[in-house]
Design a protein around this nucleic acid. Sequence first.
DNA 1: AGCACTATTGGCGATGTGTCAACGAGGGCG
DNA 2: CGCCCTCGTTGACACATCGCCAATAGTGCT
Lengths: 203, 203
Amino acid sequence: MVHVEAARRRRLEPDARREQILSVAIRLFGSKPYAEVSTTDVARIAGVARGLVNHYFGTKKDLYLEVVRIMLTVPSVAVEQLRVGEPAERADAIVNWFLDVVSRHSTSWLAAISAGGMAGDADVDAVISEAVDVAADSVLSALGLGDEPVEALRGMARSYVGLAIYTAREWLQRDALSREQVHTLLTTTLLTMVDRVFPYANQ
Amino acid sequence: MVHVEAARRRRLEPDARREQILSVAIRLFGSKPYAEVSTTDVARIAGVARGLVNHYFGTKKDLYLEVVRIMLTVPSVAVEQLRVGEPAERADAIVNWFLDVVSRHSTSWLAAISAGGMAGDADVDAVISEAVDVAADSVLSALGLGDEPVEALRGMARSYVGLAIYTAREWLQRDALSREQVHTLLTTTLLTMVDRVFPYANQ
DNA sequence: AGCACTATTGGCGATGTGTCAACGAGGGCG
DNA sequence: CGCCCTCGTTGACACATCGCCAATAGTGCT
């Protein structure tokens, strides 16, 4: 008879246990929609009692928010590196950087951004908006427009980020556009906004 | 003492009953995210047993899909009316029409397009994608490009619709942009795409 | 080895959902 | 006019999931 390890209860450091459960949650929420992931699944795969998930993360939605936050937390680019050269070069660099990041963690990024590509829940919305805000400010900063906190300008930058998100989904999920076409679309549009739309933001 | 109508059981034509329940569902799903609406609420407000909701609509998600479909079904514009004049005039007309429609049913449109918290559900995604496809084809048609079914061109049109959606949300939910600014952004971007991006779609 | 601290468990109660057999309102037929 | 038969409607059962909490038992320390 094969000796089955009796899955004895084991204590871990709270940080370690939290991280372990979180990694399982990331995997599951990254592959299924929210409603199809149960805390029971998370606990079972993590080899842990379900109550422990609540103990560490509170509500299921709290756990989900934590996961989305992590998925959308992008390796903060050295924006300063982008603040050189002609506007066309800068736009090219921004778009390339964005497409690189997005395609690298494509699956998890897609899950997070469509979990809220447009979410309805207020808390999820807040997390997504936060990420969009950061991205919009990065764009403005890279273009050398980040020091003027005109609200309309930031609004337009957020719109551009929205376009970038949609276009990236179009590229990754469907196969209608090639990377080159996506690149052209996003750079051309960005330059147009800088030249002809952003100035309009200052009344 | 006020005579309370004893809420006697009453028979309705299936179509009538279905419509009645549906109207309640539209009201509720339009004001709360998916998870915060229970079929019990729908049934109670409709003055009906909960089982009847399932009888007419199947699953709760099925009911929700029906609601979203209706909310996103926009009074189909006479696109032919837009197919006149200079490209700039056409773009102006399209954007104005879109902003009118969106601001008219702003709350329900917002609720539907943000697809109430159903994070990444395949069926919900399909309904929304369908609406985006229709809108994208309308844009191409109005621009006189609708007769060439180049897939890349349609992809870029969908991206533009994504921009329009996100910008509309930026306008309606936050107050960073005025309608005039939104209008400028969307028309300028659309013309840019027509002139410099769409041609690139044909290799 | 014994102990205290606390990570971990397992079950309880509440809530929501899908299903189905049974009921009864309301029109048609004798 | 009254029976009856159809099908719209109900109410309850079974199941799943979630938040919570008292009890349990690893594990390091003395």
